Amino acid sequence: GLTEEQKQEIREAFDLFDTDGSGTIDAKELKVAMRALGFEPKKEEIKKMISEIDKDGSGTIDFEEFLTMMTA
């Protein structure tokens, strides 16, 4: 499992990506986040990433899903 410290770091990354503070990361926010990390993702790639992570089919990534992605 994760230490509380690791969870906190992932939470901070999540909050950075969640620019509108909605508690979820949408495609637009993910794209901005990827760019910040030096990637140039295409729209299809973003969609694919979200569909792989987005277990509940909401079209957005919540913290639990993000946590799973970061620790996979």
Rank of each mutant, 00 (worst) to 15 (best):
K31L: 15
G23W: 03
G57W: 10
K31V: 15
A33I: 15
I61H: 00
D54K: 12
L67D: 00
D56A: 07
I46W: 11
D26C: 11
G21L: 05
S51M: 08
I53T: 04
R11H: 03
Q8M: 11
R35T: 06
F17V: 14
D56K: 12
I61P: 00
I53D: 03
I46A: 03
E12Q: 12
G59I: 06
E65M: 14
S22M: 03
M69I: 10
F63H: 01
M49S: 03
G21P: 01
E9Q: 11
T60C: 08
M70L: 12
Q8K: 11
D62N: 14
L16G: 03
G23D: 02
T24R: 09
E52M: 14
F14W: 05
K47G: 06
S58D: 12
Q6T: 05
T71E: 07
G21V: 02
F39E: 01
E5Y: 09
P41D: 05
S58R: 08
E44H: 10
A72C: 15
K55V: 09
A27E: 08
F14E: 00
I61G: 00
G21T: 03
A36G: 04
G57C: 12
E65N: 07
M70T: 01
S22Q: 03
E44P: 05
E44T: 07
M70W: 13
E65Q: 15
E12Y: 13
E45S: 09
D54G: 11
K31F: 15
A33T: 03
A72G: 07
P41S: 09
I50F: 13
F14N: 01
T19C: 12
F66V: 03
G21I: 02
E5S: 09
T71Y: 08
R11Y: 03
V32M: 15
I61D: 00
E4S: 10
Q6W: 14
K43T: 15
A33D: 00
F17Y: 10
T71A: 13
S22A: 04
D20L: 04
K7H: 08
I46T: 04
A36M: 14
F66M: 02
K42S: 15
T60G: 06
M69T: 02
E65A: 14
F66P: 00
M49E: 02
L16V: 05
I25C: 04
K28C: 13
D15R: 14
T24W: 11
T24N: 04
A27K: 06
K31E: 15
T71H: 05
D56S: 11
D56N: 12
K47W: 09
K43D: 15
T68L: 14
V32A: 15
D18M: 04
E64I: 09
E9H: 15
D20Q: 06
V32S: 15
E12T: 14
F66N: 00
T60K: 11
A33Y: 06
E64W: 13
G23L: 02
I46H: 03
I61R: 00
E9L: 14
D15K: 13
I10C: 11
A13Q: 08
L16K: 11
A72I: 11
D26M: 09
A27N: 03
K7R: 11
T19Y: 13
G38H: 03
D54P: 03
A36I: 11
E65C: 12
Q6M: 09
K48S: 07
T68Q: 13
K7G: 03
K48H: 09
G38Y: 02
F63I: 05
E4M: 09
F66S: 00
G59D: 06
E40N: 15
A72S: 10
D20K: 04
T60D: 08
K43E: 15
F17M: 09
I10H: 03
T60W: 06
K43Y: 14
E64D: 09
K43Q: 13
S51Y: 06
I46L: 11
E9M: 13
K47E: 15
K47Q: 14
L2S: 03
F39M: 06
D15A: 13
T19N: 06
A72E: 07
T71N: 04
P41G: 14
I61W: 04
M70Q: 01
M69E: 01
M34H: 01
K31G: 11
E5G: 07
S51L: 07
I50L: 15
K47F: 10
Q8I: 08
D20N: 09
G21R: 10
D54Y: 10
M49T: 02
G57N: 08
K47L: 14
D18Q: 03
S22T: 08
E52H: 12
T19I: 13
G1R: 12
F39H: 07
E45Y: 12
K48Y: 04
F17E: 00
F17W: 09
L67I: 07
K55Y: 05
G1E: 09
E45D: 12
E45W: 15
I46M: 06
D20I: 03
P41C: 15
S51P: 02
K42F: 09
G21E: 04
K47I: 13
T24S: 09
T60A: 07
D15N: 15
T68H: 12
A33C: 10
K43F: 13
L16R: 12
F39R: 06
G1Y: 10
T19G: 04
E64G: 07
D26S: 11
E29Q: 13
E40H: 14
I61S: 00
